[in-house]
Simulated assay, not measured.
Amino acid sequence: MPGTRRSFVSAFGVAAFLVTSGGIARQAFAQGKDVVILAAASLKNALDEASADWARKTGKTTRVSYASSSALARQIEGGIPADIFISADVPWMDYVAERKLIKPASRSDYLGNQIVLIASKDSKTDLRIDKGFNLRGALGNDGRLAMGSVEAVPAGKYGKAALEYLGVWPSVADRVAQAENVRMALTLVSRGEAPLGIVYKTDAASDPSVRIVGAFPADSHPAIIYPMALLSTSTNPDAQAFADYLKTPAARPFFEKQGFTVLK
């Protein structure tokens, strides 16, 4: 029953996450001290390290809520108080910009990334990603392909675009397990609940229990760009200082170590 198995993520779990992350943001915003950041889930490892480094150097702190860019954009639209938004794609930043929810002059294209096909570290799967490659066969009789939601999550949208370009999407469309964000897709493969998954290169680097089977050609999907901007409601003077810090040579290694390309 493909319709009932598309997503391994319960509605309760998603709701609980949004309530929790929203509560963190509201509390920090009310205190007027922490810089509150809404960031794509794929940024967690690098941004956590960068935030800790900034705190050590300045004595100032951040609070970060991680989720899919689509969920974060809708939270911003709903009025959640925060200072900075870092999206995993341009369209969701455009979405909040069109609603005048960011400070336009603060917007920049911050990071680049790649999408890759992953399997568990012990998997014997060997595939060359090319036109018409046998992805369906590699999934076996009932295996699922873990991806972010192909309609909303940037990594899922990039992945679907790549599979369509390569001509294999029709063969696997009914075997996709869609997750609420890319880290959840990573977890499905890490835990052995799906034999293969499409995630960012940076996600694969963060989890030693998976390995990269192959990288998708850059021309098979839209360019992967992470834009960053201050939210229009932010009045925290430290928000711009933190955004500026993220673009300095001091912060660059935290992102490059995970596989990001620092654009600015």
Results as ranks from 00 to 15, higher is better:
151 E>G: 07
8 F>A: 13
165 Y>G: 06
15 A>I: 07
134 N>F: 07
123 S>G: 07
255 F>V: 15
69 S>Y: 07
228 M>E: 05
27 Q>L: 13
210 V>P: 01
194 A>D: 04
248 T>F: 12
148 G>E: 10
241 A>F: 04
84 I>F: 00
138 A>S: 04
34 D>R: 01
107 R>S: 05
120 S>D: 14
254 F>N: 15
140 G>N: 05
133 F>E: 01
34 D>C: 07
7 S>Y: 00
12 F>D: 08
41 A>R: 14
109 D>G: 09
119 A>E: 00
80 I>V: 13
56 R>D: 11
11 A>V: 11
66 Y>H: 04
79 G>R: 09
216 F>C: 06
236 N>M: 02
183 R>M: 11
253 P>R: 07
178 Q>F: 04
243 A>T: 04
237 P>T: 12
30 A>L: 05
77 E>L: 08
221 H>D: 02
248 T>P: 11
136 R>A: 09
250 A>W: 15
163 L>R: 04
220 S>P: 10
80 I>L: 11
214 G>P: 00
251 A>T: 06
95 Y>I: 12
213 V>S: 03
107 R>N: 06
217 P>Q: 02
194 A>I: 06
196 L>I: 01
92 W>Y: 13
172 V>S: 03
109 D>I: 04
254 F>M: 14
193 E>C: 05
258 Q>N: 09
42 S>M: 09
10 S>V: 04
169 W>C: 00
158 Y>W: 03
160 K>L: 09
42 S>I: 14
194 A>N: 00
244 D>F: 09
34 D>T: 00
122 D>R: 11
10 S>P: 00
206 S>C: 01
105 A>W: 14
164 E>K: 06
167 G>M: 03
247 K>D: 07
191 R>V: 14
129 I>P: 02
161 A>W: 01
239 A>N: 01
170 P>S: 01
37 I>V: 06
200 Y>W: 15
68 S>Q: 09
185 A>E: 02
173 A>Q: 05
260 F>I: 14
44 K>F: 12
243 A>Y: 07
10 S>E: 06
243 A>S: 02
148 G>T: 07
54 W>K: 04
125 T>G: 10
86 I>L: 04
30 A>Y: 03
184 M>K: 14
247 K>S: 12
25 A>W: 11
40 A>S: 08
91 P>L: 03
2 P>R: 03
61 T>K: 14
218 A>H: 07
263 L>M: 00
226 Y>H: 00
191 R>T: 13
19 V>D: 14
168 V>A: 13
263 L>S: 00
75 Q>H: 11
161 A>F: 02
182 V>T: 02
123 S>W: 06
237 P>S: 12
83 D>Y: 13
125 T>K: 03
159 G>S: 02
13 G>R: 01
188 L>H: 09
181 N>H: 10
140 G>C: 08
134 N>P: 02
157 K>M: 08
104 P>N: 09
36 V>S: 00
145 L>Y: 10
1 M>Q: 11
48 D>V: 15
235 T>A: 02
241 A>T: 09
82 A>C: 05
